[in-house]
Write a protein that binds this DNA or RNA. Structure first.
Length: 439
RNA sequence: CGGGGCGUAGCACAGCCUGGUAGUGCGCUCGCUUUGGGAGCGAGAGGUCGCAAGUUCGAAUCUUGCCGCCCCGACCA
């Protein structure tokens, strides 16, 4: 992509409404534009990142055996009356009336909808276990939206729903998602730790929040230092026993958010207890028959008797992750994207656009990288070096390739690693090999 | 939902107290000089001063009402 043909409205100065770093950087890097409180448009750069994250989440859900569907954003109120949540949800639910005076709502989540789908079609235990997920926009009319995309009212969430014959099956489904989440966050370049979460009125011990560590996080977390040394599971599939073993390992260390942390009850030696800040990016829980019971989601069991299915739900805040990753990965010059989510892999800077030899060298380099399947943002604009460097640092592409009159004369390209700041002078071929991963 | 703050050009802000033809920097357009870490000079474009009512000869400025946005706290992917 040539920058001269791209839409990248960057800002030199900090917009005053943005207080936290991810919000500031997203606005300055031209990723998003606010529409109203907690509601944003995604501009090309931000949209690319959002889609990259979404795709990784999708791949890991698929790998875990969940099936992708797409449920509507607008739901009929009657579904929610059935579960009793139409009255319970309160003002956070955006209620709409259609032209026929029917009560509708913009979905804040989809338990009712998915249970209705299940109930309509699944009648036998032979079709279990089942896990259906979608990645869809949600709306929660938060009292106080803030931090840009991190707590918007409209947000993109992956939500999966599992259906099992009994508690044992449901626990395996839960463990399966637990492990999928560990893989997902690792692929996103994040250190995420699972915390035992408050299960609220539902009770039970199966609920975990996944927290991304970032100094600017909104809640304080306490955990045993060895938790971060654990190896992320990598296999494609696991047996129920293996899943349980992974979950047991990850939950064997102390980890709690400030609301669950009780220093009196925490038995971790002081030297081993770490306290940092974190951002919640995922939440999984088992809730049994809370929805299957009122919706009559029943299958016939092996013995011919009806069984109300046992359910769980599993959320990942996809749009929040964009902010979360920036919070966890930035420096004083801007964003530092992990390679897997970066909007482009390489930023190519032409230091003297309009100069024949320089343009030719850049065009050639750009053509070769593109032909190798590398996504490149090529700054072919007439600007000066300084502003081009600053802009590339701001938008945080993992690699920068710099070609100017000096390099053209000597046949060299300067390649900079955004994360480490390391710069090296390489021949064109060596630079191509490095950037295409053939080095 | 309690508390606080702010709305003036695309962005950041001054002007308001003490009413009198709307300003600065950045950005944008054109020209020239520049070009390896956000250049210099010159010439331009761009504003119903959030909205409405009121006071006044005259309102960005004073009064009242409304709207929007942000921050702190209690709650949430």
């Amino acid at each position: 992509m040539r920058l001269s043909r791209f839409f990248l409205p960057t800002l030199k100065e900090d917009p005053k409404e943005a207080q936290i770093v991810s919000h500031r950087l997203m606005l300055r890097a031209g990723m998003i534009q606010q529409s109203s409180a907690g509601i944003y448009s995604w501009l090309p750069l931000g949209h690319r990142v959002l889609k990259n994250i979404e795709q990784i989440v999708r791949e890991e859900q698929n790998r875990a055996g969940a099936l992708e569907i797409l449920m509507p954003t607008i739901q009929p109120a009657d579904l929610w009356r059935k579960s009793g949540r139409y009255d319970d949800y309160g003002k956070e639910m955006l209620r709409i009336t259609d032209r026929h005076e029917r009560d509708m709502l913009y979905g804040p989540t989809n338990e009712e909808q998915v249970t209705d789908i299940f109930r309509s079609h699944v009648k036998s235990y032979k079709n279990l276990p089942l896990n259906l997920y979608h990645i869809q926009w949600k709306f929660r009319d938060e009292v106080r939206p803030r931090f840009g995309i991190m707590r918007g009212r409209e947000f993109l969430m992956k939500d999966a729903y599992s259906f099992d014959l009994d508690y044992e099956g449901a626990r395996t489904a839960y463990n399966n998602m637990f492990v999928a989440y560990l893989k997902t966050f690792a692929r996103l370049g994040l250190q995420a730790i699972p915390l035992r979460a408050d299960t609220g009125p539902i009770g039970g011990d199966l609920s975990h929040e996944f927290i991304v560590l970032a100094d600017t996080g909104e809640s304080e977390v306490f955990y045993h230092k060895d938790l971060l040394g654990l190896k992320t599971p990598e296999k494609d599939s696991y047996t129920a026993e293996e899943l349980q073993a992974v979950v047991d390992e990850w939950t064997s260390f102390y980890a709690a958010a400030d609301d669950m942390h009780d220093p009196a009850k925490c038995d971790v030696p002081e030297g081993d207890l770490v306290s940092r800040r974190g951002i919640e990016v995922g939440h999984i829980f088992h809730f049994g028959d809370k929805y299957s019971q009122p919706f009559d989601a029943v299958v016939t069991g092996p013995d011919g008797k009806d069984v109300t299915v046992s359910m769980g739900s599993y959320g990942i805040g996809v749009s929040r992750l964009v902010g979360g990753i920036i919070e966890a990965s930035h420096d004083e010059n801007g964003i530092v994207w992990p390679e897997n989510v970066a909007p482009f892999k390489v930023g190519l800077i032409n230091l003297k656009s309009g100069d024949g030899p320089c343009d030719a060298a850049c065009d050639d380099f750009y053509g070769k990288l593109s032909a190798a399947g590398i996504e490149v943002l090529y700054d072919d604009t007439a600007g000066r070096g300084g502003e081009k460097f600053a802009k590339m640092d701001l938008i945080g592409l993992p690699w920068q390739a710099v070609i100017g009159p000096r390099g053209v004369a000597s046949g060299m390209v300067e390649v900079k690693n955004r994360a480490t700041g390391d710069k090296q002078e390489l021949s064109v071929d060596a630079a191509l090999n490095l950037l295409t991963g053939k080095a």
